[in-house]
């Protein structure tokens, strides 16, 4: 309670409240996350349970009763009779899960390597940062495709759908760790020369303890900003991979998969199968990105 009231009185919260963009983006992003978490409760059907589908409902027009069954679907249905509204909710789940997990993976990996590189310096630093430099010369999507290809080659076909999501997380995470490593290394280089670190060394604290207990907590501010911006990028990367057909499988479709499926119907007039998932993806990525931008400015004292 005490912490909540300090937070509500802080300058940070004040600035947040005063920025309509930040509040709007936060509300949209929060609604998306809530919708994804409570998808089973909010959806009218489980679109991926074949038992709940009725092929007769196929191609229902949004908001109008179906010509055969008379059922109404707010956002229409696809060719299989799946409710587009429900598929979006479930697709949002996959997209957000992959996005969050990939960023978490990238953050843990990047922060650890950045911390070690910055604190140890010398050869370890050179090796880690050169690997990072080399990786940066490949476009992120290419790295993800490469990892995806390798994973596909080594997993037996029967498991592919099951591991696909995890491969996706690792692929996106691995293409994204470099910026976390750079930022944490930069902050570590600053912090490790500060006198509180000297004071800890003086009493013989081991490097591991100094890195984790002293330096890491002081590098988390910028990491949080990057994580938010990365989340938007990771969601888009996931959608791109899924759109290209190397991401989430049709049995567990993400927003990207839905867009890929939907684009096939664009020219036959069933625009809603593409439009609504695409709009959702746009709103999600935009709100998270705006929030990240605002956070970066709010936490950067130089831009005040």
């Amino acid at each position: 309670m005490e912490q909540l009231s300090t937070f509500l009185a802080s300058d940070f919260f004040y600035k947040f409240r005063r920025s309509p963009v930040a509040v709007g983006a936060f509300v949209v992003a929060l609604l998306m996350v809530l919708a994804a978490v409570f998808a089973p409760l909010l959806a009218t059907q489980n679109p991926f349970d074949p038992g709940s589908l009725n092929l007769m409902n196929g191609f229902s027009i949004p908001g109008e009763p179906n010509q055969f069954t008379g059922e109404t679907f707010v956002l229409g249905t696809d060719d299989q009779g799946r409710d587009v509204y429900s598929t979006i909710l479930y697709g949002l789940r996959i997209s957000l899960f992959v996005g969050f997990s990939a960023v978490l993976f990238a953050m843990v990996l990047g922060a650890t390597l950045g911390l070690i590189a910055g604190y140890t310096g010398g050869r370890t630093d050179s090796i880690i940062m050169r690997i990072a430099d080399i990786q940066l010369t490949f476009p992120a999507i290419l790295v993800a495709l490469l990892i995806f290809g390798i994973a596909k080659g080594i997993t037996p076909p029967s498991y592919r759908d099951e591991v696909a999501i995890w491969v996706l997380i690792i692929a996106i995470g691995l293409s994204d760790w470099v910026q976390f490593a750079r930022v944490v290394r930069g902050a570590t280089l600053v912090e490790r020369n500060k006198e509180y670190v000297q004071a800890a060394k003086l009493i013989g604290r081991k490097p591991m303890g100094i890195m984790v207990k002293h330096i890491l907590p002081n590098t988390l501010g910028p990491v949080l900003v990057i994580a938010t911006i990365s989340l938007a990028l990771a969601i888009i990367a996931e959608a791109t991979l899924s759109f290209l057909g190397v991401g989430a499988p049709p049995t567990q479709p993400s927003l990207g998969t839905l867009i890929r499926v939907g684009q096939g119907f664009l020219f036959s007039g069933e625009y809603w199968i593409l439009l609504y998932p695409a709009a959702t993806l746009l709103a999600l990525a935009l709100s998270v990105n705006l929030l990240g931008d605002w956070l970066r400015d709010a936490l950067n004292p130089k831009l005040k």
Binding site: K194, E195, Y196, Q198, A199, H214, P217, N218
Partner: peptide
């Protein structure tokens, strides 16, 4: 006195 105490 500013850098010698861990702010966190």
């Amino acid at each position: 006195p500013y850098a010698s105490l861990n702010p966190r």
